[in-house]
Design a protein around this nucleic acid. Structure first.
Length: 294
DNA sequence: CGTTGAACCTGTTTGC
DNA sequence: TGCAAACAGGTTCAAC
């Protein structure tokens, strides 16, 4: 069996575990800070750039949380009697949110800089600008979140089953659908399906109760383990405390086309499902049926 | 209801 | 060697 591989290190695909890692890194340094000023570069990924410039200065950061793949900065404005707003940040593919000293050099493609009251700056960098900034008033907060499905680590198997059964889409499509579960992306979808031994193209409505339970367990284990290992190769996400994620070393199928399955040695195949690369073991991950092969 | 493909972007990898 | 095409995937939207 393969001992050591050097999978795509250096890539950073922010799915739930990576975003959670960023949030945990930022929370201690950001909580309680006040935003002094806002500087914007390109703004085509920001819902309402003028609103950021108008409303953020003076706001205090009450908390940093994760909602699916979004980072949520909970803010209370200094004026306006402490009015609550949330700044939702989506990292897209290449987004980075970093807390740095203002004298540190700015990375290329830095498009949002929030200067804070402690001499630091919260900087957003995103080469491809697939990310998103949305300032959401407290009144609209639940509506914003309700466009997203359940947190995968919080949903029960009964709830999950009720969501899955009526759907005729391919199982992988379901996992990528943020309105079902929020936070799963291409890597962790493939990893969870491999662990659950379910073919990515399998129709969700045809999954057995057992498979549904296995799928949820696989999703939760993969995500939990990835969080524990600080995500897949995220590096220096926040000042000196940041350590590279290590989960990419645990990938079982993602990026392993042509290599041996970790369970049975069969060559991993890659197919396109709902427009995305999908890696799976043609032997372990059965199209239909109930085989058990180890 | 569902799928497909394109669009949005740019850095990196691959292929000729 | 150099350049161009392919690729990377999160999200949204139009078309079927």
């Amino acid at each position: 069996m393969i001992i050591c591989e050097t999978p795509d290190a250096g890539k950073n695909m922010p799915e739930l575990p990576e975003v959670e890692t960023v949030v945990r890194g930022l929370r201690p340094t950001l909580t309680g800070r006040q935003i002094v000023s806002v500087r914007l570069g390109k703004t085509d990924f920001i819902d309402d750039p003028a609103a950021l410039e108008a409303q953020l200065p003076g706001c205090r950061i009450a908390d940093v949380a994760r909602v699916g793949k979004f980072i949520e900065l909970r803010l209370s404005s200094a004026n306006d009697g402490g009015k609550q707003v949330s700044l939702f940040v989506h990292l897209g593919m290449t987004g980075r949110l970093l807390s740095q000293l203002s004298e540190e050099p700015e990375a290329k493609h830095t498009h949002v800089v929030l200067s804070l009251d402690d001499g630091r700056e919260l900087r957003y960098t995103d080469a491809r600008r697939f990310g998103r900034f949305a300032l959401v008033l407290e009144n609209d907060r639940l509506a914003f979140q309700s466009k997203l499905g359940a947190e995968p680590l919080e949903i029960s198997v009964e709830q999950f089953s009720a969501l899955v059964k009526p759907r005729r889409a391919m199982t992988k499509a379901l996992l990528l659908d943020q309105r079902m579960l929020r936070g799963i992306g291409n890597i962790y979808a493939d990893e969870a399906l491999w662990r659950a031994r379910i073919h990515p193209k399998r129709l969700a409505s045809k999954l057995t109760e057992k498979e549904i339970a296995r799928l949820l367990r696989s999703i939760q284990r993969v995500l939990a383990e990835a969080i524990r290992l600080r995500g897949s190769s995220i590096s220096d996400f926040v000042d000196s405390a940041g350590e590279p994620g290590e989960f990419q070393l645990k990938h079982r199928v993602y990026g392993r086309e042509g290599k041996g399955c970790f369970r049975c040695g069969t060559r991993i195949q890659r197919v396109i499902v709902v427009g995305r690369s999908s890696h799976f073991c043609p032997k372990c991950q059965t199209w239909r049926g109930t085989r058990k092969r180890a």
